[in-house]
Amino acid sequence: MTLEPSISEQIETAIAPHHVQPRGMSRIYLWSVTWRLGFILILFLTFFPFVFLVITSLKDTHQFYHTFWLPAWPMTWSNYTQAFTDLNGYILNSIFVTATSIFGIVVCSTITGFLFARYRFPGRELLYYMMLAMLMVPGALMLIPQFVWVQQLGLLNTYSVMVLPYIAGMQVMGMFLLRSFFSQIDQALFESAQVDGAGVFREIWHIALPLSKPVLGVVAIMSALGVWNSFLWPLVTVSGEDVMVLTVGMLRYNGRVAHQYGPMFAGYVISAIPLGILFVFFTRAFMRGITSGALKA
């Protein structure tokens, strides 16, 4: 007898909010539903062109005109073999150029970052700010004098014209990131290594580098994105097929397969695969690499 009302009271209070404020609740509910639907719509619109691209890359011309939106069978895998035989030279060049540049950028920025972080020497500040100042000058504006200059140096149509300027420009950002990271490492670590007779190189190799793997990953990914995507510089400095990189090669490929949408889109898909592989294996470094480029401003 005494228990029953209290139980019903409990039930009353437990279900009360649903009864008490139906209008308020439904407004919040409506709000969150719209919010979510909007989000899904944006995601859909962002990805739709890419999905469409992949679907269409597997169609032949007839299928393209007759089943425009939906996938069509049989799938035309030969689009991919055709695109790949046309593009693999460019891809190899791009991979070579990107890998060499990353290596150079990481080596240069590790050395300069370490020296600036750890030692004092006359001219340190001057050299440091001299490097940083170059972050202020956007590359696109130097395109023409830079082009004339490498032409005078006789570097047109070589791999070095696509590697050396990238190392020169992108090492600065890497130096900046690594310098601030190295100076946060406990200096006692280096000092005890010194006592044991380690020189600069062993300090870098055995202490600084192992501790800074995440930052190195960020520098590497940032450089990879920058070099791989660069278009205008290789467009003006390289005209020979044998050293041409993918971005410029795509332009030629696009002209060759005009209006054959299957092979054209297969080429587009192939062009995204190398960075895609990098993305799958280094997702976190990739995402951090994108935002830390923000420091550039």
């Binding site: 971005t247 795509m250 332009l251 995204a272």
Partner: peptide, 18 residues
């Protein structure tokens, strides 16, 4: 967040071609 970063694997030039 990963999904929104994913399109960045496509080279900028190719995005403009698309």
């Amino acid at each position: 967040r990963v999904a929104l970063v994913l399109p960045m694997i496509v080279p900028g030039v190719v995005v403009f071609m698309i």
